[in-house]
Amino acid sequence: MSSVSIPRRMKRRKYTRRDSQAYLYLAPWVIGFFLLQFYPFVMSLVYSFCNYQLGTTPVFNGLDNYVRLFTRDADFIRSLRATGIFTVAVVPGKLILSLAVAMFLNREMKGINLARTVYYIPSLFGGSVAVSVLWKILFQDNGIINAWINALGFQTVQFWGDPRYALGTICSLEIWQFGSSMVMFLAALKQVPRSLYEAASIDGAGAWSKFWHVTIPQISPIIFFNMIMQTIQALQNFTSSSVITNGGPLKSTYVLGLKLYKEAFTNFKMGYASAISWVMFLIIMVVTLLLFRFSSAWVSYDD
């Protein structure tokens, strides 16, 4: 993102009368920013230091919400854990799978476009309720996956009933939708100059070495962009846990998004929920900063 640059040509010119019209075009967004982003952003921080039931006046209570979250709310710790596991499994899982498949599909073959199309289809459904319902049925104790497991002579796996498997099964739903990152990677791979691979071949580089020393550095900005966006998304995951397991069994899938929703819109503890949202936000900030920090080591923006 830091590579966004304003064309040189423009910098030389002074602002003209025509240019002042820009504010007119930006007006909706500026209003939207203050009303729908900046103000709510600040207010959620303010609420997080308040005891605020919906419909009442917020009362300042200092760090109470945060202290309670970390010392007296075992469910919150479980949520952190569930979201942590989910993010750590889904983000790398999706990235590696989509990159591997993109590498594999990045070739000239008859019918390859059909494959790309089919692989993209699961991504269409995103966080829709329909696919969550579908996953719930597929992986039920007497669902088709278990019917196959039984047919192979194994015992029924309680995908939704066993706290060891439930979160992993939800992760599989997310990883199934790797198509849109795959398409992004495919587009990026097409941009890598052939000459680089040829030069590497002349230097005696094998396929593996080409992958690490040519492909990865060349597409690193896309990997990075994907990594950040997917992490932000994964930390807020909600639909699958809400629809399929409602956080169970034994709160093993009680992700932060679900915890936030329940505190805010079932218990109407807006202050407490705001504190959760700020913990979430701080985690996102820290993870993003860390990613940016480490990105300088491997992301190259040389073009």
Binding site: M1, V4, L26, W29, V30, F33, L36, Q37, Y39, P40, F41, M43, S44, Y47, L54, I228, I232, L235, Q236, L256, G257, L260, A264, F265, M270, A273, S274, S277, W278, M280, F281, I284, T288
Partner: peptide
Amino acid sequence: ILFGILIGTLMLPNAVVIIPRYAM
């Protein structure tokens, strides 16, 4: 600055703004 803000909001999670938005 405005463009920076635009990019910043790209990374602003919905979860952070939803509660005050709801109250509003």
